[in-house]
Structure formats: C-alpha cells, structure tokens
Design a protein around this nucleic acid. Structure first.
Length: 379
DNA sequence: ACGTCGATTTCATATGCTCA
DNA sequence: TGAGCATATGAAATCGACGT
C-alpha cells in the first residue's frame, strides 16, 4: 500500500527548460547582431497580418479594447485565407482551420467562441509577433500607412469584409463564402516593391552597419549553411570589423554553451553515476572545446572554466550551476553530487552524445535562423 | 504580485528506411 | 511490397524572464 501526499510545489522540479541558465547568455550575444527578431518570428505572412491589423487600427480608429477582439477575428479570417491559398504552408492554428474549412458548407464562420488555438492571443500571431513587430518599428517608417492603403486598394472587396468583422457585436458570428477567400490572396503574396523594401529595412537590419545583409546578398550560399559554417564564411570576406567581432563572440559563446549543455543532457540519461564512471567517460572527455574567452562576458568565462577541469570537477560545476539556477526558480536541483557519485532526479530533455561534434553542431540559434528565414521569404 | 511575452520542449504526425 | 521501426518535422503547450 502506498501513502501519497501532495507534493510541496516549492520542492518539485519545475519546468524542463534551460537548466543551466544559458538562455540569457546566448540571447545577449545574438542581440548584438540581430536587434528585433525572435526565434519564433520567422514568417513574413505573420508580419503582413500584423501590418494589416495596424493599418486598420489607425484607419478605422479602433480603440485599444476593441482592437484585441478585431485582431482575433482578423487572425482567423487570414488563417482560412492562407490555408486555402497554400495548405502546405504551416502556421499556428493550422489543424483547427483544416478541420473547420473541410466541411460541405459553402461558407466559413468567424466566431468569437471558436478559437483556433487553446490560447489564441498568447500562442498565435499576436503572442509571437507583437514584440518583434513593434521593436522593428515597422509602423513608424514614414509612408507606412499610405503604402498599406495602396496595397489594400488592390483588393477592393477587403475593406467591406473588414467592415463586417469590425461592426459585428461580441459573440455574433460572421460568415464568408469560401469562394470570396481567394480575392484576399494578393495581400499575403510574397512582398514586392515598397512593401518588400519596408520589410528589408526593418526586419533585416543588423547592429553591424547592415553588413550581415550585404554579405548574404553577395553570397547566397550562406543561406544554406549551419551556424559555424556561416560564421566562418562570413568572416573570410567580411569588410566589417564590427560584424566579425559579433560573429566571433557568438562562435566562442556557442563553443562553450553547446558542449556543456550536451554533457548535462548526457548525464541525464542515467539515474546514477559513480565518480569513477564520470572520471573515465570518454564521451565527456571528447566533448571538450578549447576557447579563448578574452573579452567575453564574465558569466560565460565562468562556464568555460568547467571545460578546463577534470571530468568529475566539470560535472560538479554543472550540478552546482543547475542547483543555483533552480534555487532562483524556487525549485530543486535536477542532479546532486555526493561523496560516491552523481544522483540524477530529472530526466526530461536527456540526450545521448552519439554523433555530437562540438565543433560542428550548435544548440542555440542567436536569432540567425529567423533572420535567414525572413531573408529567404523576401528574395 | 501579476500579466505578458516568447523560447524551448514535447508530442503528434509524416516520411523514410530496413528487412522479410 | 509492406509491416514495423526510426527519424524528421512542425504545431501545441508550458513555463521562465521581465516589466509594471
């Protein structure tokens, strides 16, 4: 017979992410190069939807409170449109839209009761794009409103459809003919002309005199490269000292973070390690990198020290770091070293070291993959 | 203390691979 | 050829950080 008591929420492991507090470190390195994009803001259609919403907010003088409800309806309408235009292209909410559109009805329904995500505001376009969209300053670019007005005029039916969405009282449905949706396709076509230039100027700017953009424009092969390949090739021909410096910080940061992360994840694959097992682990030994930390942040320099220590001390360093990070989250450590060995209590995210090469593989994107994704969609 | 933002993990599904 | 397994993909949901 078992006696179960409720767990004290302060003494269970909370979450499964970032056990070594690495997120703030790689983000800081990435932000020095790419100012506004996030790792999940990588769809140009989502940015186009943000632009359409902002345009109508100003054009129709929609108050803040009413705007949230309008945005929610607009996101649903555009979800039907983008799905019908290209069912293969993904977006958050695609599954429910797929079910809703595949009915015998001739119409689709925009309903305040029918969300396309469990929390559409948080997990949809608004949640993912509001911060990058405003930080990039898209609506502050002079001529934004006129540009959008001109673009929307090319789809005369759209103003009327939006008008129906805006005027509809709370909890009353709006229906649109499925055949109408294709009229809206041009609004989410690949941006051209002024619209394209607007996105290039705001989303593909960088903190190194736009030399990242120039370098990629001159060598399209860079688009298909992994992080380290990209950095190496960029550094070879880059004219910008600043870009080289940012890229080198990113490279050296990742050469420290990624091996330590992999060792931690590898330790999670077993519930117990003797000190001897740790000391003779060739997997841990082979995952070491040798990085010059000159000029890097103090927190990354401290992490790098672990990589210079013998296996047991390295693992102890990681366990201590995890304990500190967990304590900051009012939680308990995932693993604990005692006199005999390492006790592992939390296994989420465990990964073998098979095929891992710390000089080739990276774990963190430094916002560069989002940047490249947006670049591809504009070229 | 609470709410918002959004990065990361997990999960479900699709696709690929192996071997009978 | 196709069952069964492995891997890839990408959407959903969670939960930490940060700002108010």
């Amino acid at each position: 017979m078992y006696f179960l008591t409720a767990k004290d929420p302060n003494y269970i492991v909370k979450g499964s992410r970032d056990p070594l507090g690495m997120q703030v470190i790689w983000q800081a390195a990435g932000r020095r190069l790419i100012p506004d994009l996030s790792t999940v803001s990588s769809s140009i259609i989502d940015f186009q939807i943000m632009c359409i919403a902002s345009y109508y907010k100003k054009e129709l003088r929609i108050e803040d409170k009413a705007f949230q409800s309008f945005f929610n309806r607009l996101e649903k309408l555009m979800a039907f449109v983008r799905f019908q235009k290209n069912p293969k292209e993904g977006f958050n909410g695609v599954d429910r839209i797929n079910k809703l559109i595949n009915t015998p009805n001739k119409t689709i329904t925009i309903s305040d009761q029918q969300e396309i995500l469990s929390n559409q505001k948080a997990y949809g376009v608004w949640g993912k794009y509001n911060r990058p969209f405003s930080d990039a300053g898209i609506t502050e670019i002079s001529g934004f409103h006129e540009l959008m007005k001109k673009k929307i005029k090319t789809v005369p039916a759209f103003d009327k459809m939006i008008d129906r969405l805006v005027r509809k009282p709370v909890d009353q449905n709006t229906e649109f003919n499925k055949s109408q949706l294709q009229l809206i396709y041009p609004l989410i076509d690949k941006p051209e002309g002024d619209e394209r230039n607007l996105f290039i100027k705001t989303l593909l700017k960088d903190n190194c005199e736009n030399s990242l953009y120039k370098a990629i424009s001159e060598n399209k092969n860079l688009l298909g490269m992994s992080l380290y390949e990209l950095i190496e090739n960029l550094s070879l021909n880059s004219a910008s000292e600043e870009l080289n410096h940012s890229l080198d910080s990113i490279r050296r940061t990742e050469l420290i973070l990624s091996p330590l992360n992999h060792i931690f994840r590898y330790l999670q694959t077993k519930s117990y390690w003797t000190r001897f097992e740790i000391s003779v682990s060739s997997a841990i030994e082979q995952t070491r990198t040798n990085v010059d930390t000159e000029g890097l942040d103090i927190s990354i320099q401290e992490l790098n020290k672990f990589l210079t220590l013998p296996n047991v001390e390295l693992v102890l360093g990681l366990a201590n770091r995890n304990e500190q990070v967990s304590a900051g989250r009012k939680s308990v450590a995932w693993m604990k070293m005692n006199e005999n060995g390492l006790e592992v209590n939390h296994f989420e995210g465990a990964r073998s070291m098979y095929d891992y090469n710390p000089t080739i593989h990276n774990d963190n994107s430094y916002f560069i993959s989002s940047y490249l994704n947006i670049y591809r969609q504009l070229h």
